[in-house]
Amino acid sequence: MSEAADRLAAVQANIADAAKRAQRPANDICLIAVSKTHDADTIRPLIAAGQRHFGENRVQEAAAKWPGLRAESPGITLHLIGQLQSNKADEAVLLFDAIHSLDRPSLVTALARACDKAGKQPQLFVQVNVGDEAQKGGCMVAELPVLLAGAEDAGLTIDGLMAIPPAEVEPAPYFALLDELAERHGLPLRSMGMSGDYATAVMLGATHVRVGTALFGSR
């Protein structure tokens, strides 16, 4: 447990330092512990150390482990950070408090229907393909205004944007682009930054950082 607490404290200190350099309050940044592929026994020490926001990539995996963990530890906020299939929208809306990967009109339709059925809406982020990468999820930058308008027409509230910059390149320009897009569209939240670059993301406006390896260690 002390190892998990030490890792958490180190990440929190790095976030606080980056926020200070950017002249931002550290408590404006939400740290999401990326718990995908980790079992309940690996997650519990981080919960015990005080971590309350967790991120999962797959609805099925989250459904298998989080109801039990949440029963043990009330107050957990669960984020879906992986791609979402439209046929999983109903389950995702019931299970997650935030969905970071809204990226296409068909998913807008499925989520609007699911939210109406559930009588609630998770916090929603539109994922933007800031690097124009064919193999990666996210709507293209040019398509963002139409997708946002479609979400509004469907009755969905979009709270922010999410991005994963291309690998092996300097991420700062992509973080700056996402920040500028969010600003342009009047969206308050920016989900960007992972274990290798979250400090840079905080410097460039991130409100949510998604950190796995730095908290759980290498696999």
Results as ranks from 00 to 15, higher is better:
G131F: 06
G50P: 13
L84S: 06
D159K: 14
H53I: 12
L144W: 01
A163H: 03
E72C: 13
I99K: 02
G138M: 09
G75A: 02
D41L: 15
S73P: 03
Q123H: 10
G119I: 05
A92G: 03
E72Y: 01
R44N: 04
A154W: 10
I158E: 02
A151K: 02
T37D: 05
A92V: 11
A98K: 00
P171C: 07
M140Q: 15
T157E: 10
G160R: 04
T109F: 02
R104V: 13
T109V: 12
E143I: 13
A71N: 06
C115V: 09
S86E: 11
A149M: 04
A149S: 14
A98F: 01
K65Y: 01
T109N: 10
G75F: 09
L144A: 07
A63N: 05
K65R: 09
H53M: 01
A118N: 08
G82Q: 11
M162F: 02
K88C: 07
R58P: 05
L147V: 12
V34E: 00
L156R: 06
F54S: 00
Q60M: 03
G150K: 09
P45G: 08
Q123E: 13
N57F: 07
G137V: 08
S101L: 12
P171Y: 07
I47T: 07
K136L: 04
I99M: 03
Q85N: 07
L94I: 03
V93R: 02
M162N: 01
C30Q: 14
R70P: 05
T42W: 03
K136G: 05
E91W: 01
I164A: 09
L69D: 03
P67Q: 09
P45K: 04
T157N: 12
M162A: 07
A89T: 12
G82I: 11
S101N: 04
F54D: 00
A151M: 05
G160P: 15
F125C: 05
K136M: 06
E168G: 07
T37N: 11
Q121W: 04
R44Y: 08
P166M: 04
G75L: 09
Q83L: 14
N87W: 02
H53W: 10
V59P: 00
P165S: 04
G119F: 08
G82R: 02
Q85S: 08
G82H: 08
D159F: 05
G50C: 10
A64Q: 14
M162I: 10
V169E: 14
C30P: 00
D39P: 15
D90P: 06
S35H: 04
G137D: 02
Q83K: 08
L80G: 05
I32M: 09
A33P: 10
K120V: 12
K117Y: 04
G75V: 09
A118W: 06
L156F: 02
G50S: 11
A110M: 08
L102N: 00
I32F: 00
H53C: 15
A110Y: 04
K120I: 08
D116N: 15
P45Y: 03
Q51K: 03
Q85V: 14
A62W: 07
D103L: 07
L94P: 00
Q127A: 12
D39E: 05
E133S: 14
V128N: 08
V93D: 06
E61A: 13
L102M: 13
V93M: 05
A118M: 06
P145E: 00
G68Y: 08
H53Y: 11
E152P: 10
H38L: 08
A114G: 10
P171W: 01
G50A: 13
V108T: 12
E170A: 14
